[in-house]
Design a protein around this nucleic acid. Structure first.
Length: 646
RNA sequence: GCCACCGUAGCUCAGCUGGCAGAGCAGACGAUUCGUAAUCGUCCGGUCAAGGGUUCAAAUCCCUUCGGUGGCUCCA
């Protein structure tokens, strides 16, 4: 119960997520990887740490946004300004500009901001009536819209409903006035002119709605000191180095080819090995947890997806149909309908439940071109999918069984920076994005909430993030460059089993519809490997490494010996290569290091004479002249345990 | 899909306001046989994303398409 995050902390759509306090005060946090909600919670209660919104840094960033808006309006007097909040690591401001803005303009604006800061202007708050506000912003249509929202007591600046009617206030500094509830620094001088930097220009819809006009957003970063800024920029640089798109190419894991198409990755041999290892892991774990493996086709008739609800609710993300002999077929975006058919293939008794059907199924989703992102967001994906059919009284145990599975995987991979998110429906979406049965939504949402709370698993809640057929627990992670993704997911389906007329006979001999849990603890191969590349910065644990050992003969005279060593390792199932190239040993070691091969076995005359190997590990440490058997025992033990140790 | 920017050799990148396409790495070949992150030399390699236009002349300017990047929207 104590783990439940208060509504104030709920993640809300379109609202800037305020991780910065954690990031800033955190000691182990990596850029773009906010620590889990648990940690945030604990820190807040134990150390009475101030909220980001109350911090000086928040004020600095908020004030920097105003100063930037002033500078932009000086260069573009016809520009309309909208909103500009502090966010993680900085701030932004959205403008409706008469012309596109360039990176050179950004430099000018930044320079002007420093002048304004040097001017030592006080920030002055004034509470005004709606009428006065309308007068002040009479030429600013976006501000007038905001004023109306505030006056009606309905909506905040992001268009989210408010509980209470807020006061209307303005903040002035120098020549600039903004509709704003604050808080701000007292004087522009409290902003360090050498600790701010404008970062990028982006498009953003007014109020985050794609039906609205596209505005120009300028992102900036602001810190207390120049050194903090430098450190932040250096961390961004480090993060770019572990970007899976960059490492994936360097380590020859996957490629994209223009003729194949966007979002359709080609797995290179190294990626193929990693996929095989992940599937082996999944099969082992699922076998122990009582799953049964099934296989289903990639294409099915339209009728199936009409019944499942995919065409009514999910068609936008599906590839268009192909028609053959008057029948329309779709490539599957999910595996569930076929699994439902397998469940329905024979009568089921309560004694058979739960039935857990698993498949690493390949699905295709037509993601909009701009949404694609490396391996993290693709159009063809292979899911660590399974569907658990159970009676309502089995639900909690089964649901938490899946959560336990997550935890085991996360422990194995050392994944600590994630947030479990209870994704709920939104009333407005009923009948459109969501199956139209509010009673069952509320009921299943509460079942999940209770299960998580009883299990003592911390989570946050998010409105309007559910699947069309039910609520879910999503595991949110962050890419190296800070983008948020759902890695694993655990979903309740109260709707589709009924549409498929799925039944089991209960103890009383009466037919009952089972609940279905959709789950994908290892995500898709695409997203999982994308994530793992970044998580390990390409230095995978030995069991997952495409190349586990490279044997490096010092001169050609040891080539034969090196090959014998490799043959012995290969016979034990180790992935090993021999570098018989003409380069010097130093160059061979460098190449192996760049490919992040965990073990290098250097063999020269000494080793050959004594029948040993010299072990150099990826971390630079080395053990000279050890018997091959000793190394073999070490690596076999690491692989068997899927250890993260070298 | 939308806004902005980008696309030069397999990879990383030079190529200023239009005037004969370059480097390093990789690859091939030759020499070298070396003790823990780059040995030397020679050679090969490009319809400058594709298509159209402006111009005496286009990698460079303009348009369209394709692909990518940063965001927005959307999501495993």
């Amino acid at each position: 119960m104590a783990n439940r995050v208060e509504p104030r902390d709920r993640i809300r759509r379109s609202r800037p997520v305020l991780w910065a306090r954690v990031f800033y005060f955190g000691q182990t946090a990596v850029v773009g990887h906010p620590p889990p909600a648990v940690e945030r919670k604990r820190k807040m209660s134990n150390h009475s740490e101030e909220r980001y919104e109350d911090s000086q840094l928040y004020r600095i960033r908020h004030s920097a946004a105003h100063i930037m808006a002033q500078a932009v309006l000086e260069y573009y007097p016809e520009a309309k300004y909208t909103i500009g909040p502090p966010i993680e690591n900085g701030f932004y401001y959205d403008f409706d500009l008469p012309q596109p803005i360039t990176n050179e303009d950004l430099e000018k604006i930044e320079k002007r901001m420093r002048q304004i800061i040097a001017g030592g202007h006080p920030f002055v708050k004034e509470v005004v009536s709606a009428e006065e506000a309308r007068q002040i912003f009479k030429d600013q249509p976006y501000k007038l819209e905001l004023i109306q929202g505030l006056e009606q007591g309905g909506f905040d600046e992001y268009g989210n409903p408010l509980d209470t009617k807020p006061e209307i206030s303005i903040y002035k500094h120098d020549t600039f006035v903004d509709l704003c509830r604050g808080p701000h620094v007292e004087n522009t001088r409290q902003i360090n002119p050498s600790a701010i930097k404008l970062m990028s220009i982006a498009g953003a819809y007014w109020r985050g709605d794609e039906k609205n006009k596209m505005l120009t957003r300028i992102y900036g970063t602001a810190w207390r000191t120049a050194q903090e800024l430098e450190e932040y920029l250096a961390m961004l640089e480090e993060a770019r180095k572990r970007d899976h798109r960059k490492l994936g190419k360097e380590l020859e894991i996957f490629i994209y080819d223009d003729e194949v198409g966007p979002g359709l990755p080609l797995w290179l041999p190294n990626g193929g090995i990693m996929i095989e290892e992940l599937e082996r892991l999944a099969k082992e774990m699922e076998e122990k947890a009582g799953y049964l493996r099934v296989r289903t086709p990639h294409v099915t008739k339209e009728d199936l997806f009409i019944r499942s609800g995919h065409l009514p609710y999910y068609a936008e993300s599906m590839y268009p149909p192909m028609e053959l002999e008057g029948v329309r077929y779709y490539v599957k975006p999910m595996n569930c309908p076929m699994h439902h058919k397998i469940f329905a293939s024979k009568p089921r008794s309560y004694r058979d439940l739960p039935i857990r059907l698993a498949e690493y199924g390949t699905c295709y989703r037509y993601e909009k071109s701009g949404e694609l992102f490396g391996l993290m967001r693709v159009r063809s994906m292979q899911m660590n999918d399974a569907h658990i059919y159970c009676a309502e009284e089995q639900f909690e145990q089964e649901f938490m069984g899946v959560i336990d599975l997550y935890k085991k995987y996360f422990e194995l991979f050392g994944i600590q920076k994630y947030v479990m998110r209870l994704s709920l429906h939104a009333k407005a979406g009923l009948g459109k994005k969501y199956v139209d049965n509010e009673r069952l939504w509320l009921k299943t949402e509460d079942m999940v909430r209770r299960a998580m709370t009883n299990g003592g698993v911390p989570f946050v809640e998010a409105q309007d993030e559910a699947a069309f057929y039910g609520p879910k627990i999503d595991v949110q992670i962050w890419s190296a460059i800070g983008r948020e993704f759902t890695l694993a997911t655990n979903q309740v389906d109260f709707a589709v089993p009924e549409r498929f007329d799925l039944k089991f006979v209960n103890k009383d001999g009466v037919e009952e519809t089972p609940l279905c849990i959709h789950r994908a603890p290892l995500s898709t191969h695409e997203r999982m490997i994308g994530f793992l590349i970044e998580h390990y910065a390409g230095a995978f644990p030995v069991w997952l490494c495409p190349e586990q050992v490279r044997v490096i003969p010092i001169t050609d005279a040891q080539n034969e010996y090196a090959s014998q060593i490799a043959a012995q390792l290969r016979a034990e199932g180790i992935r090993v290569n021999v570098d018989t190239g003409a380069e010097r040993m130093n160059a061979k070691i460098r190449q192996a290091q760049l490919m992040k091969v965990p073990y290098m076995l250097v063999v020269g005359n000494n080793e050959m004479a004594s029948g040993t190997v010299s072990l150099r590990m990826r971390d630079g440490s080395q053990q000279n002249s050890i018997p091959l058997g000793e190394f073999l025992a070490r690596i076999k033990e690491r692989i068997a345990k899927r250890s993260s140790e070298l």
